[in-house]
Structures are given as structure tokens and as C-alpha cells.
């Protein structure tokens, strides 16, 4: 058994070496929040033409991406769905502060199960919420979209009137599911969630909450990672992602621009 296991170990080490070396070609690694998956996948070919290098995109939650960068993962550009994670990296000097930019914004929207035509004016918001049986939101303790929803409702002075009919989802997708399946007539989700439903879905957008209701509006900051050896290419990628071509794609996914 000894020689065989030794041979296997050798092969494994050789394969590992080969794979690691092949990853050294001219390429740029972008770590991006999962909510950007569709838009960035669609933009990848155009982005590669623009920067003249292969673009490698790593999708995960912003917190996971931050931890990877903190541990020295080979990332050139970080595109976060939350300012907090970018702030942490900036304080630690792990991203280049001068390259940081808020590229996208996301907002909260009231959606309905199709029994009502949208959009509705702000004046009738209280009446619509009052009439509804249930209102689905993310659990404000653990789901960012839920915390934002509660904050917006509070700012409008409507929270106390709906507090008794809240249905809490474990994540924002579940809230969307509640409304799409007709389990709850109303729900509050991100603009991007509302934009993700298929054409034959009954979900309708009823009311977009203005950004001014939130103490910290939802921003998607992007920055070059300090350890990147491709600072110029990385800056070029950020420029491309702010271009009109890129904005059109992000707009399709429901994003707005700060």
C-alpha cells in the first residue's frame, strides 16, 4: 500500500501545482455580492473586451467576500452590497480609499399579489396597508431588507398600524415567495427582488419608498483591493462598471444609481 499511496500523493501534488500555475495568466479577479450575479454575468464579455484581460468573478455574500480579502485571497476588485463591509476593509487599509465609489443603489418597494394595480400614490398608502390582511417583511432582527422595511414604515408613521399583521420571512426571497404564492397580499422587498420575478408572475410594484426615509440608504460600493498587482486594470474595470452600457444592464436588474 505504501508505494501506491505515495504515488497518489505525488500525483495530487503535481496536479495541484499545475492548476495553481495555470491561474497565473493575465486576469482580473472581481469579488462581487451575490445579488449582482445576473447583471455581472451578462456584462462579463463586454467588460473583458474593455479591460483587455480575462475577468474572473467570485460571487458570495459580502461578509464572506470581506473575510476572504482579510485573509489575503487574490482579489483585485471588491463590489459589496453593504457599506459596512467596505468600511471595515477601508479602515484596515485593505482597499484603496481613493478608488472607492458608490456605483449602485437599491431601494425598498411595496409589492402586491396582483389583486391591485400599481403604482399607488403616497396618500393612499395608509389606506392600502390598513385594508390588507397581512404584510410580509423580512425578520428585522436578521434580514437587512426587513430592517429597512421597518425603518421606512416608522419614518412614514405607519409602523404601529401594521405591526399586528406582519409576517416575517427568514430572508427576502421568502418574502417575495409569500406574495407571489398569494399567502400574503402585500410584502416589502428590494427593488432588485421585485425586478427578478418572471414575466407571468402576478407580483406588481405598488409603491417605491423614497431613499430619504432611510438613515443609511442602500448603497453598493466598489473599490480596488490594496494587495492587487493589477491596480490599473482594476481601475479600468470600475470605470467600465460605471459606464452607460453597464448601467443599462444594472437598471434591468432593478438597481438605481445614487
Amino acid at each position: 500500500m505504501r508505494p501506491l499511496s505515495k504515488r497518489v500523493a505525488l500525483i495530487a501534488v503535481a496536479a495541484a501545482a499545475a492548476m495553481s500555475v495555470s491561474a497565473q495568466k493575465k486576469e482580473l479577479t472581481l469579488s462581487a455580492a451575490s445579488s449582482l450575479t445576473d447583471a455581472l454575468t451578462a456584462l462579463k464579455p463586454a467588460a473583458e473586451r474593455y479591460i483587455g484581460a480575462e475577468l474572473v468573478i467570485n460571487f458570495a455574500s459580502s461578509g464572506t467576500l470581506r473575510a476572504q480579502i482579510e485573509q489575503g485571497a487574490p482579489v483585485d476588485v471588491f463590489f459589496s452590497a453593504a457599506t459596512s463591509h467596505m468600511d471595515t476593509l477601508e479602515r484596515a487599509g485593505l482597499v484603496v480609499a481613493s478608488t472607492r465609489k458608490d456605483l449602485l443603489s437599491n431601494g425598498m418597494v411595496l409589492i402586491g399579489d396582483g389583486s391591485m394595480k400599481g403604482p399607488i400614490p403616497e396618500g393612499s398608502l395608509a389606506a392600502v396597508l390598513g385594508k390588507a390582511r397581512l404584510l410580509a417583511v423580512g425578520n428585522p432582527d436578521s434580514v437587512p431588507a426587513g430592517a429597512y422595511a421597518v425603518e421606512a414604515l416608522r419614518a412614514l408613521g405607519l409602523y404601529d398600524s401594521v405591526a399586528g399583521k406582519l409576517v416575517l420571512g427568514n430572508n427576502v426571497r421568502q418574502v417575495l415567495q409569500f406574495v407571489e404564492s398569494g399567502s400574503s397580499p402585500l410584502g416589502i422587498v428590494f427593488l432588485t427582488d421585485a425586478a427578478s420575478v418572471s414575466k407571468d408572475s402576478p407580483v406588481t410594484r405598488l409603491y417605491v419608498f423614497p431613499d430619504s426615509l432611510l438613515a443609511k440608504p442602500v448603497r453598493y460600493p466598489i473599490a480596488v483591493v490594496s494587495a492587487s498587482r493589477n491596480q490599473d486594470l482594476a481601475a479600468k474595470l470600475i470605470a467600465f462598471l460605471g459606464s452607460d452600457e453597464a448601467r443599462a444592464e444594472f437598471g434591468k436588474a432593478g438597481f438605481a444609481f445614487p
Binding site: 495541484a16 491561474a23 479577479t29 485573509q71 485571497a73
Partner: peptide, 19 residues
């Protein structure tokens, strides 16, 4: 990771495991 004990040793010989 590049800051980890194994990762930093591998990085010195030009090897990279993460990603």
C-alpha cells in the same frame, strides 16, 4: 490564505491555493 501559516509558505514558492 496568504496570511495563514500554510498559505504564506506556499506563496513564497509562487503557489496559490485559495480560489
Amino acid at each position: 490564505g496568504r496570511r495563514g501559516p500554510v498559505g504564506s509558505a506556499l506563496a513564497r514558492v509562487g503557489l496559490q491555493v485559495v480560489f
